[in-house]
């Protein structure tokens, strides 16, 4: 699991544009949803492929399928929660900056 930066009050940060920050948060949220959709499709297709090739022709597929399942696990268990956390944090920073602009923007 990745650690990510969150403002704990001891770090100063310099925000050029709060609007851009909010836009970035929205974009990341939509990309995260796109990953969810594509991963669901990928899992469905892989199951269908496996169902059609359970004979000797499909033996070579096992490592490929396993690699893809591993990648999906990383996406679902690490990347997606991180992006979700990232989006929430960005919105929090944006809101905090708006309410304390003199303290947050240098």
């Amino acid at each position: 699991m990745f650690s990510m930066y969150q403002n704990n009050g001891s770090n100063n940060y310099n925000i050029n544009s709060v609007t851009d920050l909010e836009n970035s948060a929205g974009a990341l949220a939509s990309y995260n949803q796109a990953i969810t959709n594509n991963v669901s499709s990928l899992e469905y297709v892989m199951k269908a492929v496996q169902a059609n090739w359970e004979n000797e022709n499909g033996q070579d597929l096992q490592s490929t399928i396993q690699n893809l399942n591993d990648a999906i696990a990383v996406l679902e268990n690490e990347i997606q929660p991180l992006l979700k956390n990232y989006v929430e944090t960005l919105y929090n920073i944006a809101n905090e900056t708006k309410s304390h602009q003199s303290a947050s923007i240098f």
Binding site: N11, N12, Y13, N14, N16, D20, L21, S24, L90
Partner: peptide, 9 residues
Amino acid sequence: TAISNNIKT
């Protein structure tokens, strides 16, 4: 990358 440029820490 855009965020890194926006929040410089």
